[in-house]
Amino acid sequence: MSGHTDMVLVDKKGMRIDGRKTDEHRPVHIEAGVLSNADGSAYLEIGKNKVLAAVYGPRECHPRHLQDPTKAIIQCKYNMQAFSVSDRKRPGPDRRSIEISKIIAEALEKVVLTELYPRASIDVYIEILQANAGTRCAGLTAASVALADAGIPMRDIVPAIAAGKADGHVLLDLNKEEDNFGQADVPLAIVPSTDEIVLLQMDGNMTRKEFDKAMDMAFSACHEVYEIQKAALKERYAIAKGDEDNE
């Protein structure tokens, strides 16, 4: 966020270095049900980010002292693989990944009907295979598809995307250069059916006007991502329907 560059991140026509307009997100591709052991899973690409999410549960909660007699708890582990970033990342959790895991679990808690499974745990694992800014949003977006794929009762599916500021422009879905040399980053996740905010962070420097614009962009992009999430799930379960037509 604090880096400086001579690179022009947004040109005079409002075009970004990867050819996007200011309010355009990178291409999103989601595939549901990609792993066999996990109860639910999803693979997601947004631009150059590549993310796998897996869900196990509801299952017995370990460690036991975390059990809640009234509802299931959601435990999330967000992990960046060693080769996912330009400098090799040392394996194992660091403070950043622990914080991200916590806020993702909390965002999912809002939509999962945890009260149906007292004492149980729903475990969400997010592996970042390749990182290019926006991995927490990519991870959360993939994780909610994996949760639905696991057949877990939930009110809605959570999409997430970041907005921010670079070269003085409010931009949607910052890429790595815009994130490194930009002035602000605001990851957002919502419950689309109610437009409630379940994840929000901000760092950098923005005016109220800029922030409101960023929110408008992120909200509308979340709804677009939501449609891609739903399509991925419907495609996975449409295979059975295909059989029906063929037989």
């Binding site: 939509v111 809605d156 689309p192 799930l233 379960y237 037509d245």
Partner: peptide
């Protein structure tokens, strides 16, 4: 095929 029931997702 026409009777195929509709797949729905949460929300």
């Amino acid at each position: 095929a026409r009777n195929a029931r509709e797949v729905v997702v949460p929300g």
